[in-house]
Simulated scan of single mutants.
Amino acid sequence: MIINEQMIDDIALGATVLGTGGGGDPYSGALMAKAAINNATKPVELLALEQVEDDWLTVPSSMIGAPTVAIEKINSQSQMLVAFEAMEQTLNEQIQATFPIEVGGFNSLIPILVAAQKGIPVVDCDAMGRAFPESQMVTFFLDDLPSAPNTLADEKGNVVVLHPIDGVWSERFARPITEQMGGSAAMCDYPMKGINLKRSALPATLTKAMQIGAAIRQANETGANAVEAVMDIVAGHRLISGKIMDIDRNTSGGFVTGGLRIDKLNTSTHQQPDSIFVHFQNELLVAHCGELASDMSQASLLAATPDLISILDHETGHPITTEQLRYGQRVDVIAYPCDQKWRTPKGIEVAGPGYFGYPVEFVAIEKLVTVDSVQGV
């Protein structure tokens, strides 16, 4: 399948839904990806995971850092290629294919930029099925695949090569380096042969993003309800239709962190809480009933990582990233199941609410949903 401009727009939109608030600004990423495929010497192909040869060297392409930084510091197209080619130089081997480390916003489109410049295909997969804030929160880490080497590059031409013992140490080293690089950097990690990629990656996630994006686009063209169109695809549940009444957002330590309160719309006909609070660290991580962060308890829990939480515009269904959230926006908050790999004991240990310090245990969204609390599809 050859990637075209419509596919890029649909992937950008759908991947921002799956990005659960993180992954970076999709608009600038889509513009850069379109320019890249138009300037490429040959078409960029999207390969199914099973089409990857066992002996191919494959490497993901991504950005690391706080998404809010990109509001004032536009990402450089060249730095992504620098990090990628630094990986080739470090391994002394040519890379045959690239793919997104996460299917989220801008990060879902970076492999298209790199593939267009290198003349290689993009693999229809990722290592999260969503976006997560830290480097070890990938299926490759769950499967004990090595993270090293890592390469990071900034827009000035600085390059750092790391050899961490695992994904946890990759995060510990890469995050402060990213801060010194201005809060965002291009990064390549988890180089692996195709046989391991096929064993560990989550398949067809770019296709899923494309389907979600197309559903939103078509719903707006026909006057259908875009939020319901998204929920049909992701098996989602509406936590609230409401208005953002308060938001606290801070950028430090290479993350954007905070939370927001959403009050139920008076026009809502669904059975929902009067207000909910949503916590985020780049991505939306926990939602619970109540007006304050301190209201959290197991009894008030509505949804929790590693399940997905997305905030969509109430009228258009367009996803809203954490850096774009504003007072007064009318939104729908939906939650839906993560891949089963994240519901294993190790998956919950790595990316569950307890890891982020939230005083609740993970409960699958299917179990949290009741007719008295939220309105499902």
Rank of each mutant, 00 (worst) to 15 (best):
A97P: 07
S184M: 12
A204S: 14
T207K: 12
T90W: 06
P111Q: 10
P146R: 10
G167V: 00
I177K: 04
F173T: 14
G119N: 05
P146E: 05
I112E: 01
L202R: 01
A116Y: 09
N158D: 11
V114R: 05
A131G: 10
N150F: 10
M210N: 14
G157L: 13
T139C: 06
W169T: 04
V123G: 00
P100V: 03
F106T: 00
L145Q: 15
A127S: 15
T178G: 03
A201E: 08
G182I: 02
Q94F: 10
A127P: 03
D143E: 15
Q94S: 13
S147Q: 11
E155P: 04
N196R: 13
T205H: 05
I165R: 14
A186W: 01
Q180E: 14
Q89E: 13
F106R: 07
L162I: 01
D144Q: 11
L197R: 09
S108W: 03
F106I: 06
L206W: 04
L197I: 08
W169G: 02
Q96K: 15
E155I: 12
N107T: 05
A186M: 00
P133D: 03
P133M: 00
R175A: 11
A116T: 06
V168Q: 11
V159K: 04
F141H: 15
S108D: 00
S170Q: 10
I101C: 10
V160I: 11
N158Q: 11
R172S: 07
I95N: 02
P149S: 00
Q96M: 12
P191V: 04
T139S: 13
W169V: 04
F99C: 05
F140Q: 12
A127L: 14
A153H: 05
E102W: 02
P203F: 02
E179T: 13
G119V: 09
V159W: 02
I101K: 08
E171H: 08
E171F: 05
C188F: 01
V122I: 12
L91V: 06
Q136L: 09
E155T: 11
E93H: 13
R172K: 15
M137W: 12
A209W: 06
G119M: 09
A201W: 07
E171M: 00
A204D: 12
G167C: 04
A131L: 08
R130M: 01
M192V: 08
D124N: 13
I177H: 03
D126H: 09
P121Q: 11
A148M: 05
L142A: 05
L202A: 03
R172H: 12
N158W: 03
I101M: 10
L145P: 07
I120F: 00
K198C: 10
E93W: 09
M192I: 06
F173L: 15
S135Y: 10
P164R: 04
R175L: 07
N196Q: 15
